[in-house]
Design a protein around this nucleic acid. Structure first.
Lengths: 250, 250
DNA sequence: TGGCCGATTTGACATAGATCAATAGCGAAA
DNA sequence: TTTCGCTATTGATCTATGTCAAATCGGCCA
């Protein structure tokens, strides 16, 4: 058996009743200074907090389905989600993974354009969409934050198109691991131990590959000494420059 | 030689000097009520018009390159553009095509995330990015229009990911033609005669295929009686339900 | 601790689409 | 109108990845 790693990031959901009566529950939010809320001052946050409804979600449960009326926006407080679209015959494309602090519900018009499903026990903060839209004119900081989020998402969607349209299986896999490492690092130091809350099948559906190809690819990266598999679905990046070489984009 | 089609949409660029001195040049703009400007009232348009600089572009010329400082936003007044990203070894992914009325310059942060190149002689309206950003707080209608645009783009990027990750060559091609037909139709009646300002190579780079596969695919759709090729790079959709069947998404 | 069940890995083979290689078509210039 | 050069089409192979199938692993529950 392999070593357990030092700091296993178990998801510890803050207790629902942890909010002090009368105080602003958002103020104590775990993602207070990462999510969209980060750009708001205390009085603005106060306004939002009245609208927010937290909710917990078990593995495999969906937040909403593609085609549902898009009446809510969400902030992911803890856990991880996958977003996906389906073809009628069941082929699936995962368009993204969400982690704590991420925003959910962009890309709506009237209906959600994808299904959002929990990869692990997760907690969300739910906001009524129309109310938020109503607040935007009075909260230009919020509006511009949303616009920036949308731009960032768009840029990363375009990067993903390049990956899906033009990269080989190995390149896709290496790019994916590096991308994950960078996202999990946030603004801190680059991270080399990555947790994979998603299955090989999910990775395949994200990269436009089959489970088998993903598995073979992981094995090959491992044999090349670029990564190592750790207990509990962790991957350790052992040779970042090497992995970047395989990823192929500059 | 085959028939010329009835209404060959030659690009006729309005003469640059067509603006009356003293009047608002935007008021007479060809895309006045399609582009982002459509949500603005006359006084707001007046403010913008002072910032706008028109410019013409020949086939093959670029508006900007991936990595350039993103200091301008653009509205495409006439013509067509392709947007693409490159890998170091020259592999290319076209992330989108733009037509008259479309907005260009979303998906910026500090640098453009893709190169924009003219597919035909085109005219653009250029706006300084920082000035526009400064106006957003005072023009919530413009801000919300941009947000909506970004959402729409995002949704279509996700649809494209599904196409690139999970569809067969024939499905991609059929989807592409239907998508083009719908875009060119705008809000009017569905269109069945589609102009293709882009080469087969461009279509391939958009769909994640090679030129040869695109060409074979077109031939196959033609043999099946779903489409017909017309003079001057036009394609006529002859059996829309049939084509939708091939496209495969519901 | 042992047994089960789904997830992962590995292997053998099939194929959609890529690659390499000729033509054939078509538009611009002379 | 003819020619030239690029673009598109078609054909003959090749290969990366998909498909089918069989272990093997690993987590969870009794």
């Amino acid at each position: 058996m392999k070593d357990a790693h030092p700091t296993g990031p178990r998801v510890t959901l803050p207790h629902p009743a942890a909010k002090l009566p009368g105080s602003n529950p958002c103020a104590a939010c775990a993602v207070r200074d990462r999510a969209i809320c980060a750009v708001l001052d205390d009085s603005e946050l106060e306004q939002l907090s009245g609208l927010a409804r937290p909710s917990d979600l078990d593995v495999g449960r969906t937040v909403f389905f593609e085609g549902d009326d898009a009446d809510s926006l969400y902030v992911l407080i803890a856990g991880a989600l996958k977003l996906y679209k389906l073809l009628p015959d069941g082929r699936r494309q995962i368009t993204g993974f969400l982690f704590a602090g991420d925003f959910l519900g962009l890309a709506f018009n009237e209906e959600y354009q994808f299904t959002a499903e929990a990869l692990m026990p997760s907690r969300l903060c739910r906001l009524p969409r129309t109310k938020i839209e109503g607040l935007l004119p009075e909260m230009p900081k919020l509006a511009s934050r949303l616009l920036n989020l949308a731009f960032t998402e768009l840029a990363s969607a375009q990067t993903q198109m390049l990956l899906l349209g033009r990269k080989t299986a190995q390149e896709r896999l290496a790019s994916f691991l590096l991308h994950l490492a960078d996202r999990l690092a946030g603004q801190g130091d680059p991270v080399s131990l990555i947790h994979l809350p998603m299955s090989r099948a999910d990775i395949g559906d994200y990269l436009g590959l089959t489970v088998e190809t993903v598995s073979r690819g992981v094995t090959k990266l491992k044999s090349a000494g670029l990564i190592a598999l750790r207990d509990g679905n962790y991957i350790q990046i052992q040779d970042r420059p090497g992995l970047e070489g395989v990823a192929g984009d500059l």
